[in-house]
Design a protein around this nucleic acid. Sequence first.
DNA 1: CATTCTGTTCAAATTATTTTGAACAAAAAA
DNA 2: TTTTTTGTTCAAAATAATTTGAACAGAATG
Lengths: 176, 176
Amino acid sequence: MAKQKTQNNQVSQQASEPLDGVRLELVEVAGQAAHVLGFPRSVGEIYGLLYLAPNPVSAPDICDALSASKGSVSQGVRQLVALGFVNTARVHGNRRIHYEAVLEVGAVLRQGYEQTIQKRTIVAEEKMKGLHQSLMVQKSQLGPDDYLLIKDRLQGLTKVQKRIKKLMPLITALLK
Amino acid sequence: MAKQKTQNNQVSQQASEPLDGVRLELVEVAGQAAHVLGFPRSVGEIYGLLYLAPNPVSAPDICDALSASKGSVSQGVRQLVALGFVNTARVHGNRRIHYEAVLEVGAVLRQGYEQTIQKRTIVAEEKMKGLHQSLMVQKSQLGPDDYLLIKDRLQGLTKVQKRIKKLMPLITALLK
DNA sequence: CATTCTGTTCAAATTATTTTGAACAAAAAA
DNA sequence: TTTTTTGTTCAAAATAATTTGAACAGAATG
């Protein structure tokens, strides 16, 4: 097999042809989706590539296919593995690590969603606690009307926050 | 009442004192929350300010309180009004428009969430349609295995997408 | 009606985020 | 063992998003 130098200045074992139309389109779409969900585009693109790959892909081949830098891919796969979107895999006759997409997108998304919500719930609780405390500390320096107004409105926020916290388990259950 | 020049180089009717601790803290928290939800910080800060304001606030006073520029506030309130987080209000003896926070945060959030999901569902449907079409167009140029692989995996995505679409109404119902 | 204030828009400046690529260490290949 | 390839990290470059401020037009005020 003829080896060839790639853009990344690396020799690729399997002279990876450029991506065909559908694959390119999914890479694009996955990049957009990632962006909407608050991840870097490149992370989505890597997942898009792996999702339609017939075999696990090595990091250098990912670089090549997406014309992305080593650094980007290194960080990207790390995130994807951490999030559970990608698994590492060993490939016959090759001791390097390869990557493959976890195909159960729905399940992974749900799990990520659940984690995100949990984290945010905790943060929200802390912030609310902080606000109520600040109010207490400041009580003496506020006019009585002002104090009551702030107290009421903060309680309104706390109510919403508790409501969401209570409903989330139900929702994630529904998603299963 | 002594008028005074503000940072914004405007004369403020009501010599607005600097924000007290709790208010400042909510401005900060609301800014962070906005950022998490994908809005500019400044938009959240404006809402935070209005949420604890005893009376409707004019745009120049918002500028002043947040030391933000006119342009920022102009765009910010526009977004907030569009999203339903803020209402315009007339104030006694003053024909300028003032702004007040809609206090039902939960309801507004839910509505925004619902809209976002709806939009995204539509976009997702279109993209999936596009992908399936591209696949058809390309069918003849793909190996049969390759074709089948791509078809199957795209169908997997479509399934997830349809599942989410079907569940969303349930979830938003739950949130009411 | 003249003057001051307010609100909008948008190009330019600022700020935040992402990507690159160089330096390095460690693994594979020769 | 020597050479090549791979993978990580992180400062710097590139890009994306937000904010500012100037220019303008339309209200309010006296």
